[in-house]
Amino acid sequence: MTAAERVRVLSETLEGTSIGLLELTTPEETIRLRRGDTSHPPPLAAIEPSMRAHPPGLVTAPCPGVFRTAHPAQDGPLAQAERHVAAGEAVGLVQVGPLLVHIAAPASGVVGEVLAENGATVGYGTPLLRLQEERA
C-alpha cells in the first residue's frame, strides 16, 4: 500500500467520527491527519475529573487500568516528584492491555507526591498524584 492510499483509507475511517487528530509514527514514515478548526490545537486529554469533590491539585485515574509512571517507549518518567509540567501535559499513563491513556495535568504546576505505585491496578477516580502550583 502506498502512502497516498494509506492516507485515503485512514481519512475515510475518520469520516463521521469525532476524532480530530490522528498521528501515526513508524520507523519508516509519519502520518498526521487533522480535521476541524486548525487555528487551535485540539485539547489534550480533556478527561472529565471525578464528580466527587477532590482537594485541588489531586490527579485521579480517568478509567480502570494499570498505572504507569513512564511511557514504555520513551525516556524519562512522567510521574516524578518535582517535575514541572504545562497544563495538558502527561503526568502519567493508565495502561489497558495495549492501550495507553494519557493522564493530563489539569493545570500547569509541579508534580508533588506520587500516590499510586507504578504497575498498580487503578479504577476511575483512584488518586494518582498531587500537582502543586508553580512557586512564583
Partner: peptide, 18 residues
C-alpha cells in the same frame, strides 16, 4: 473491585469501554 465511573449510569454501568 474496580470503580468504572461517576454516579450517572451513562458514565458507569452503561459505559461499555470502561
Amino acid at each position: 473491585a474496580l470503580c468504572i465511573g461517576p454516579a450517572p449510569a451513562a458514565r458507569s454501568y452503561l459505559d461499555q469501554a470502561a
